[in-house]
Amino acid sequence: MTPPSDLASSAVPAVAGATRTAPTSAADASLVALLRSDGKPRQAAIGQLYARYARDFKGYFRRHGARDAQVEDLLQETFIKVLRSIDSWQGSGTLEAWLWTIARNTLYSALRSERGDEAVSLDDDGGDDESGATLAARIAGSDSNPADTDCVRRGLTAFTQKFAEYAHVLERVVIDDWGYDELAQYRGCAPGAAREYLSQCRKRLWQFVGHCFEPAA
């Protein structure tokens, strides 16, 4: 699959076609100002950024198959790109989605470098629907009691293993309150395309957890 052009060409893609520009919060504006400063304030801001994002960034890289030895390097590369780009950040969209875009592009670049000319995509909408559906069916069949409160958790675990990028997006929605605009910023697409992406994400997830919501026979 051909990667999206924004991923291939830029570490920090612009927001494409967003209908709403999310206001930058006062906290984010303050953090950006510190990152753009010098000396101690900048180091303190890096410490804040690390405390807030390092664990999630590393989890993201791991779920996409990065080996332990690669994860820390990817984390460092992400921070390097953030600091090199922070002076040019215009404040459109949210800082959070912008940071995640950099993390995503860093991972993407590493995968491309590792695999040479082989086409690389982080997206989960590839041509292996059948294997995903098969896995989902197996998960559903293995649940002895779909009404079990852990049913959705088990399904989610399998879904995350199979569709890391979809799972990541869902996590951002739940944990960071992302909507269509943040997703569009992250993916470098129009909000309409972000909506379609989320719809596909929901359908995939349903394959893994849908049986949990169906009444027992």
Binding site: L156, L170, V174, W178, V209
Partner: peptide, 22 residues
Amino acid sequence: LRGRPAAHTEAAAQREAITAAH
């Protein structure tokens, strides 16, 4: 999923699972 009041059982359960995993 975002925790807004919504009568959506599916989303509420998924939100709980995702929050727990995180």
